[in-house]
Design a protein around this nucleic acid. Structure first.
Lengths: 202, 202, 202, 202
DNA sequence: CATGAATGAGCCTTCATTCAT
DNA sequence: TATGAATGAAGGCTCATTCAT
C-alpha cells in the first residue's frame, strides 16, 4: 500500500515534470526553455527534475517517447475498431492524428516543431517511438496493397513518409493559428484523405 | 569604381559568412553552432560577422532569405521552360525541388531541419521567402484548376502545404542518409509525382 | 540495560559512518566526497549521517579526533613499555607512527593529505587532538633534555614539529605507493631515527 | 612593437590572474574559492580567466608550476654563489627556502596547504616542478656524499624528503602565525640546520 | 531512530556581443 | 573595414541539508 502510494507519488511527479516540459517547450522551444522554467511550471524544485531525468536532453527524449507512445496507443486502439476499407481507414487515421494532437495544442506545436531537431541533434538518439508510428502507417498501407486497395507499384515506406510529412506540415500551420475551428479541422481532414486516395487529377 | 570594388569585397565576405553559416548550421544546428565556428569556417574574425549581420538570429534569417531566393529563382526559371500539362509540371517541380536542394547536402539539412524552428522562435519573423515559395506552388495548382487539370474541390492552399510537407519529409530522410544515389532520388521523385497525380487507389 | 544496548547500537552506526568517511576521504579527498557516498559506504541513509554529526565539516573533525585519539592511545601505551634511552624511544616512536598509520592505508592517506587543509579551512577548529599528539612528542624530547640525552640548545617544540613534518612527508610518499613492503618501511624507519639522532655529518 | 605590447598585455593579464588566484587560494583554499573571486581579485571578467586557463584545476596547476619555477630559479641562482661546505650550503638552502616563501605570506600558505591536495586529487597531474625542487635538494645531498661531508649510509632521496617535510611543517606553522618576526625566522632556520647537521644527540 | 525524496542555493563555464586598436 | 581579446549575463547541474513518513 505504502509502495503503491510511493510509486504513485513518483509517477505523479514525473508526469508533472513532463507536462511542464511540454508546455514550456511548446511555448518557447527546447533551446529557449530554462530548466528552472520547467520546474516552476511543474511545481517542483529545479533539482527534482534531475531525480527523474538524467539531464535536459533526456527530458526532451523522454517527453517524445511518452507522447508518441500515447499517440500510438490511442491510434491503434481506435483503428482496431474499424473494419471499413482502406479509404475509410486512411481517413480515420488522418482524422485521429489531427484530433489527438490538436486535443492538446501544446502537443501539436511540440511534435511538429521539435521532432526534427531532436532527431538530428540530441546525441545518439534514434527516436524509436517515431519509428513505431511510421511502421504503423506503413503497415496500414501494406495491408491495403495485399487487399488490392492500394496500387502495388507504390512503395509503402516512401508513401508513409510522404503522408506523415503532409499531415505534419498542415498540422504545423493549424497549431500556429490562434484559434482552432473544429469544422475547419474536419474540412482539411476530409480534403487530405480525398486528395491522397483520389489523387489530384480529375 | 572604388565603390564597385568595395561592394564586391563586401559581397564576397558576406557570401563567405553565409556559406560558413550554412555548413555549420547543417552540421550542428542553429543553437549548437557558435558564432566563432561560423567565423572560422568563413575565414573571418568573429567581430566581422557583426559588420554584415545584426546578430546570430539575423544571420539565420538572412541565410534563409538568401537560399530560398536562390531556390525560387532557379525553380521559376526552370519551370518557365516547360509547356507541358499539370502532371508534367508537378513532376518537374518535385524533381527540381529535390535536385536543387540535394545538389548541396548541407542546404538540404538546413532547409528541412531549421526551417520550422526558426519560423516559430526567431522573434518577429514571418519568413516571407518561404511564403513566396509556397505561393509559387499554389499558383501552379490554381492554374491547373483553371485549366481543368486539377480537381476544383481541392483547396490549392491546403494542397500546396501538403505537397511541401511530403517533399520536405522525404527530403529529410534523404538528406540524413550518408550516401545519395541519384537513381534512388529519381525513383522517389517519380513515385511521389505519380502518387499525387493518380492518388493511392488503384 | 536498554540504554546500554541503544548506546551500543548508536556507537556501531556512528562507527560505520566514520569508517565509511575515512575510506571515502582517503580515496577522493574531503571536497570531492559526497555525503551520499559516505552513507552508501557506511550502509546507512544519507539523512542518518545528520543524526550523528552536525554536518560534513563536523564529520571530518570527528573523524580526526577519533583517529588521532586512537593513535595517541596506542602510541602512549606502547611507549610506556620501553625503558630504553632517548635513542631507543625515538626510534620506537617513529616505528610506531609508521606502523600504526600504515596498518590502514586509508588512514595514512587521510592523515597526510587532509590534516593540513582541515586545520586551516574548517571554521573555528583548532585541532586539539593533533596538538596532543605533538605534545606527546614534545614531552619525549623534553624528558630527554632533562636526562641530558638531547642537546639543550634545541627548542623541543620546534624539533617536534620538524620530526612530525619529516615523518608525515615520508609517510605521504609511502601511502601513495601502490604496494607497501614491510622491509622497506623498516629500512626507512631505521634510517630516519639514525638521521635524527646522529645528524647528517659523518 | 605592437607584438611586444600585445605580448606584454597577455602576460600581464595572465600574471594578474595568477596573483589573484594565489591571494584567494591562500586565504580560503582552492575549493572554497570562487572563480569569480579570483577574477575580481585580478581585476578581470570571469570569462577572461578561461582565455588563459582551461579551467579552475588548470589554474591551480599553472599557479604551482609558476611559483615552484620561481622558487627553483631563485634557489639555484643563489646556491651557485656559495662555495662553502655542505653545512653552509644546507643552512643556506634552508634559509633561502624560508625567506623566499615567507617573502610572500600568501605563497607560504599556498605551498604548505595546497601542495599535497593537488598532488593527489587534481587528475593526472604529477607535479613535475615539485619533483624538480626535490631533485635539487637531493643533488645537494649527493654531492655532499661524494665529498665525504654527508654520511654514506643515508639515502639521499629519503633524506631530501624528510628535510622538505620538516621545513614545510615548520613553515606551515610560521605562515599561520599572524605576525612574522624576522629574528624568529632566523632563529628557527639556524636551529633546523644545526639539528640536521649535528643530530639530536649531544 | 531511520529513511531517502525533495529542496534550492550556489558555482563553473559558455558564448553572443562589443570595442579599442 | 577588420580584428580578436575581453566582457559578463545566463543557465545547467550538483549536492549538502531537511523533513514528512
Amino acid at each position: 500500500m505504502v509502495e503503491a502510494v510511493k510509486q504513485k507519488g513518483n509517477n505523479e511527479k514525473r508526469r508533472r515534470i513532463l507536462d511542464g516540459a511540454l508546455k514550456a517547450f511548446a511555448k518557447k522551444g527546447f533551446y529557449n526553455t530554462k530548466v528552472s522554467e520547467i520546474a516552476s511550471e511543474a511545481g517542483v524544485a529545479d533539482g527534482t527534475i534531475y531525480l527523474y531525468f538524467k539531464n535536459k536532453d533526456d527530458l526532451l527524449i523522454s517527453l517524445f517517447e511518452d507522447r508518441m507512445e500515447w499517440i500510438i496507443e490511442r491510434l491503434s486502439s481506435e483503428m482496431e475498431q474499424t473494419d471499413g476499407g482502406f479509404a475509410e481507414k486512411l481517413a480515420l487515421f488522418i482524422r485521429l492524428h489531427f484530433m489527438l494532437v490538436l486535443e492538446n495544442q501544446d502537443l501539436a506545436e511540440f511534435i511538429t516543431v521539435e521532432l526534427r531537431q531532436s532527431a538530428k541533434f540530441v546525441k545518439e538518439y534514434s527516436n524509436p517511438k517515431f519509428g513505431d508510428y511510421l511502421k504503423m502507417l506503413q503497415g496500414l498501407l501494406e495491408q491495403a496493397q495485399q487487399a488490392g486497395e492500394l496500387r502495388q507499384e507504390l512503395d509503402a515506406r516512401l508513401v508513409s513518409r510522404a503522408i506523415f510529412g503532409a499531415l505534419d506540415e498542415v498540422l504545423l500551420q493549424l497549431s500556429l493559428s490562434t484559434k482552432l475551428d473544429v469544422a475547419e479541422v474536419e474540412r482539411r481532414t476530409a480534403m487530405l484523405s480525398d486528395m491522397f486516395i483520389g489523387g489530384l487529377a480529375p
